[in-house]
Amino acid sequence: MWGWLARLDRVPRQTIYLLMFVACGLPFFLDVRLPLYVWPETRAVFEVTDSTPPNKVVLICSNWVQGSQGENWPQYEALVSHLMLRGIKFVVIAVDSDPLAPQFSERINERQAAKYGREYGKDWVNLGMVRGAPLIMASIGRNIKSVFPRDYRGNSTNDASKLPILQGVTGAADFQILWAIEYQPSLDWMVWLDPAGRVPVAFGSAGIVTTSWYPYISSGQMKGMMAGIRGAAEYESLVREKYGSRYDQEGLRGGRLLVPLAFGHLVIIAFILLGNLGMVAKRRAGKGGSR
């Protein structure tokens, strides 16, 4: 018995890789959804976003491109699908990012808009990218139209007929919440966008950098965050909890990726435990042999 278990001490790495591949790959073909515990950081930002009044907009700084799409895409899509479902108006910008960032966000906006029948210019607007943080953040808080004279499609931001959404929007007082979605969002948002602190700040960032956001959440400078894929999945489940079947989760990545993620974690955890079992078994077997 110990002798057999002792083999667990030296499992070939190919076996581990294969199991990992299967555990992560298989759930894509099955429709499994796991219930999950929603971390307080995600719930807080969902609630602020969900309670946006009609005269305010949600400001999203979407700086991600291909490099971090594994995590930021699900986050962005979870957020945008919620906004489109509720008909909350939102403004997408990019600050100091890859010039392709607006292209990535626009693709998702359009897909979700088609799903819920929302209209560009009325329900959302993409303003493209600017450089010059952190000073430009302060200018956005004062007057967003002066920073972006034209939107990503070339319409003037003062043109009320093409972009009615921006008509009542000037600065910080008109934003319900700022979402910064990228691999590692800049802490400068908390200080510069609205020095009076009226606009709550929320980050959607890679799981690995979330470690450093906790102090800012406990100090109240940040309202909350979406941590990696888990955050996106939690956000989706919060929307589903509230709006039920009206929420079309087809094609959303968060909830879908959470299952393989959980199984991947499980494979790692299982192998850590098996490795230890193997080590103990080998020691026992070795002792037995020597006697």
Binding site: M20, C24, G25, F28, F29, Q69, G70, E71, W73, A206, G207, I208, T210, T211, A227, G228, I229, R230, R253, L257, P260, L261, G264, H265, I268
Partner: peptide, 21 residues
């Protein structure tokens, strides 16, 4: 650190698998 990194690293694998599938 290690535990918190796993999720991040794995999401890239999932992204690729999603592409394949």
């Amino acid at each position: 650190f290690f535990g918190n990194t796993v999720m991040s690293r794995m999401s890239f694998l999932l992204d690729r698998l999603m592409f394949l599938v």
